[in-house]
Design a protein around this nucleic acid. Structure first.
Lengths: 326, 326
DNA sequence: GAAGAGCGTGAGAGCGCTCTCCCAATCCTG
DNA sequence: CAGGATTGGGAGAGCGCTCTCACGCTCTTC
């Protein structure tokens, strides 16, 4: 079982290695009869191009990285499969590999060197810690990067996001158009763009809303709802800035004897799997994660093929998924 | 911003390229003073080895693939992040890349050619369709593969699994040691090893259990529980073969006016995030997914470095996580 | 003290591919 | 029909690295 090289294909087809290479890479200007001869030789020998050799001369790895936060922060995060799926859809037909990296000691630095040494053509950064210097270094080095989600500080970088503000407004209007009169919100962490925007978008619609802070975790949803019921027992509508928090919060409502949505209407955010495992099923704001991921991949590939292309942001529209909770 | 090559490092350090290479690869037998000279040259020039060039001569890609079912089947699957995390933990310190591939038209074939053309050193197969010919082809070609989970048909392949039978027995004994007298189970799909073993392990402990079939989806959990209550209204203990099904089934119990665990005790399987989003939180059988994934990676790496090493199976012990449902 | 063993080093041959030349053959155009 | 323009194909030079091999040096050993 020996390797078949282009050399051998060329020999079998009776052409030069250069011509064989042209056929393999679909280059124009090869005579039809020679092209067929080469194609026959390829299939008869079972030839597969050696990527390393190609990569060595083209200086492209045909691989991109997906940098993720570690398992703990990812825990219960429903997005991973969707993100991978969206990226894959764009990337696979082009023969580009998707390399997964989870944040851990030295990971981001490793990603940087993978990029520099030509092992990766670009990276998609998910859930970036605002204090992380790596994105800045990547930009400074002019390497292809795309961010999932708006960066906290404005910076010249391409990112893809959903219109968080509009999504929160959607939730607000839903609660207002129900019979809710005493409306509250449980927020996400205020040191993240998503946390900030969801609050701002909500307050723009319901300026007098009661605000209790959470951090997107289920745990914090429980605590926040307990606090909310203490300080504002007559609440009848809550926008909870993540489904996971809502999932923790709803049982608190039940235990207090309140019915959802009859006594208190609840609207979540994300349309994650937690929305379906809640009872009642959650009315929530949906982000088109898979499409967004696909767009990230597309943006990254564009940066790779056109190194000096301008940075840009692509903002998707959220939509309201009406279920039973509000 | 030009690339630094080994040549240049060697020139700066005043040694030959061969010696510089030896230092980079940590080879023995390089004089201490020269080694230091080279290391200084490396850091002063910011040298990073070109992986493609290395790969071309070593014929190793230093990358492994993780073949996953597509998004739909993955939906709500809590395992992905844990699997990735476990594999990463083993693989990253060795500089090996983890390439994710989701099943779709032609994916598995592509994985095969990636392997053959030296782009991937091995693959981990998750949730393999029993009818899929690719695993067989991989084995036939003598390429490194590890399966997540026992294959349906016995075949000479390395796999890592949890002792499903023992796990089901754990659940059974839990229900028996509670005051349950009328015990039932909602099974997984009987054309999968996990589905079969969980049922078999349970029946071995509770031979007279009522059996209703499900297919691991939430949806099927709802339907199965409705059927169960119809055919066996006095049930007071249920083993549900996946947390996701249990998550769907519990609300059915509530709606029927039964309390969990007072009227009906429920034990799930997987210890997935669905166990925590259920109310009450699920008592369930835990599989150490992350550790199992790490072991898969280890097994795969072993096969890669020792091509003729024997196939084997590694079986992990499950454990019972006692929460509130049973 | 000469011969053998051992060890560190450098020279150089590739790994398999792409891509730039350059040449030959064909095509137009005046 | 001559000259230039156009086109297809081949030769060959690398891409950056590893690794074998041979060389020279020091260290034994009889």
């Amino acid at each position: 079982m020996k390797r078949v090289t282009l050399e051998e294909v060329a020999r079998v087809a009776g052409v030069s290695r250069a011509t064989a290479s042209r056929v393999v890479n679909g280059a124009s200007s090869v005579d039809e009869s020679l092209r067929h001869a080469v194609q026959r030789a390829i299939s008869s020998t079972g030839y597969l191009p050696n990527i390393a050799a190609r990569s060595l001369v083209t200086r492209r790895a045909d691989a991109i990285g997906l940098l993720l936060p570690d398992e703990r922060r990812m825990d219960g995060d429903p997005h991973l499969a969707s993100v991978v799926s969206g990226v894959t859809r764009v990337v696979r037909p082009l023969g580009v590999h998707l390399v997964l990296m989870m944040t851990g000691p030295g990971t981001r630095e490793r990603a940087l060197s993978d990029l520099r040494c030509g092992r990766l053509d670009g990276v998609i950064l998910v859930h970036t810690d605002p204090a992380d210097p790596v994105p800045g270094q990547l930009i400074a080095a002019g390497l292809p990067v795309v961010l999932a989600g708006r960066p906290l500080e404005p910076m010249p970088i391409t990112y893809v996001d959903v219109d968080q503000t509009a999504g929160a407004a959607l939730a607000a209007r839903r609660l207002k158009s129900s019979r809710c009169t005493r409306i509250a919100t449980i927020t996400g962490p205020q040191d993240t763009p998503a946390g900030q925007d969801r609050l701002a978008g909500f307050l723009a619609e319901v300026p007098d809303a009661v605000v209790v802070h959470g951090d997107f975790t289920r745990q914090s949803g429980v605590a926040a709802m307990e606090e909310l019921l203490r300080c504002c027992p007559d609440v009848d509508g809550v926008f909870i800035a993540s489904d996971l928090m809502a999932n923790g919060a709803i049982p608190v409502l039940h235990r207090s004897g309140r019915k959802v949505p009859d006594d208190v209407a609840v609207v979540g955010f994300d349309d994650s799997s937690a929305a379906l495992t809640s009872e009642p099923e959650l009315t929530t704001v949906r982000q088109p994660i898979t499409d967004m991921a696909a767009e990230m991949a597309r943006q990254l590939l564009r940066q790779i093929t056109e190194p000096r292309s301008p940075t840009m942001s692509v903002i998707f529209e959220p939509s309201l998924v009406v279920r039973d909770s509000g």
